[in-house]
């Protein structure tokens, strides 16, 4: 039961949805009984498409999968068998089991995507789990750069592609392995690795 990452290493900035979601609001039920707003105390399954949507502004499964394909080239098939859930406004989770919606429990799969702001942001968990299927917006870094990145440091890196959230990957044991998310702006790669996941490997 030894755990190399005890709870003390979990930083408040962690991307994982926490027990309390200060940014979320508990939506009142409308007279029809259908939720119109997001309820931060439970997981709600994303609607398949816009036609199935009742909560205003909630992303659809279709949009979420299309975003991963458009932005990173992850094939649609990778997400077969997965359902996507919102707990806390704009905090999406990916789950590969059976659960009814809504469901008020502590966790459902892994944190997956933040959609609250204009630019959607994948989580470290999602990038590590699905990022090896990506074909674009993947920034391959050297060993030295990878160590700075996972330590949480920002660094100047030449990058010819799009700005915004990139998958940062390095080579490990002969395979390209995604480490996490970097925000690329003005020739600088800003590490988005949450505090609890940072390591000093130097």
């Amino acid at each position: 039961m030894t755990d190399e990452n005890g709870p003390e290493s979990r930083a408040p900035e962690s991307e994982s949805g926490s027990e309390s979601n200060p940014g979320s609001e508990s939506g009142p039920e409308s007279s029809s009984g259908v939720e119109r707003e997001n309820n931060g105390s439970r997981f709600d399954r994303l609607p398949a498409s816009l036609e199935d949507r009742s909560v205003t502004g909630r992303p659809t499964r279709e949009e979420v999968v299309a975003w991963w394909t458009d932005r990173y080239g992850v094939p649609v098939e990778v997400f077969e068998g997965y359902t996507f859930w919102e707990k806390g406004s704009g905090k999406l989770w990916a789950f590969r089991g059976e659960a009814p919606s809504p469901i008020a429990i502590e966790g459902l799969g892994i944190t997956f995507l933040r959609t609250r702001r204009d630019h959607w942001k994948p989580t470290t968990d999602a990038v590590q789990r699905f990022g090896h299927h990506a074909t674009r917006n993947v920034c391959h870094v050297s060993e030295a750069e990878a160590k700075r990145f996972v330590a949480g440091e920002d660094q100047d890196i030449a990058w010819e592609g799009d700005w915004g959230y990139l998958i940062v990957a390095h080579e490990l044991a002969g395979v390209v392995e995604p480490i996490g998310v970097g925000l690329y702006l003005y020739n600088e790669l800003r590490s988005q690795v949450p505090k609890g996941r940072r390591r000093d490997l130097k």
Binding site: A94, G107, L108, G109, I110, Q128, R129
Partner: peptide, 15 residues
């Protein structure tokens, strides 16, 4: 949850 997420466990419902 921290361990499950790092290990990429997507099939768990945590109660």
């Amino acid at each position: 949850r921290f361990n499950f997420e790092r290990l990429g466990v997507t099939s768990a419902a945590v109660t």
